[in-house]
Amino acid sequence: MKSKGIKKAPGVSNFELNNIVHTFLAGDQSHPQSTRIYEELDILVGKMRELGYVPETDSTLHDVEDEDKDGHLAVHSEKLAIVFAILNTEPGTPIRITKNLRICGDCHTASRLISKITQREIIIRDTNRFHNFANGVCSCGDYW
């Protein structure tokens, strides 16, 4: 792909708040609330691990060292957008995320667990379908 000049579009997740669309890229730290988002994400990942969460490293880049794979998964754009939404909306408010690529297996699992931990409905529209996460269950039946 490099020799032909073909580039893959980066995964982006969007969340609209007060008529402003907030866009997140994987590992992005350019958002004004990044420090707070990453702190809250660390707390959520700890709670997810208590429920048995193990990162699905099949969803990472192939050219990344094994020890770095967990870190790359933790900062996928969906997770950043979800945490931003949790921090900036009232408890119980549904979270609606749009994504330009298909959600990876790890983010799907994480979204299920986050919906259970936070008691929030999380709706993610990826390129294939809507995923409606509520109480730790997805509307797709984990078949997407």
Rank of each mutant, 00 (worst) to 15 (best):
I103P: 01
G52E: 09
V64R: 10
I97L: 01
S30D: 12
D58Y: 12
L44C: 07
S59L: 04
I123S: 11
R96S: 03
V45L: 15
S3P: 04
R49N: 06
S13V: 04
Q119P: 00
G105L: 03
Y53R: 02
Q29E: 15
G46E: 10
S59N: 15
S34G: 02
I124Y: 03
I86N: 08
L113K: 06
L25M: 10
P10Y: 05
Q119A: 14
L17E: 00
R102K: 08
S115P: 05
E39W: 05
H76R: 12
T60L: 09
E50T: 12
Q119Y: 00
F133R: 05
T35M: 08
L41Y: 10
K79N: 12
V12L: 15
E90Y: 07
A134V: 14
A85D: 07
G71H: 11
H76Y: 12
S111C: 13
D142H: 09
D106N: 14
Y143E: 12
H76I: 04
C140L: 04
K47V: 06
N88T: 03
H22W: 08
L51A: 09
G92W: 02
G5S: 07
E65M: 14
D106H: 13
K99D: 01
S115Y: 04
V12I: 15
V75N: 05
S111I: 00
P10W: 06
L87M: 11
V54S: 11
D28T: 08
D66P: 00
P10S: 10
K2N: 13
A26I: 06
F130A: 11
S139L: 05
C140W: 11
V21E: 09
K99R: 09
G27Y: 03
A134E: 14
T127S: 14
K79E: 08
L61Q: 13
E16W: 02
I103K: 01
I95W: 00
L44G: 12
V137C: 00
D58T: 13
L73G: 12
F133G: 02
H76S: 07
G27M: 12
G141R: 02
K116S: 09
R49I: 05
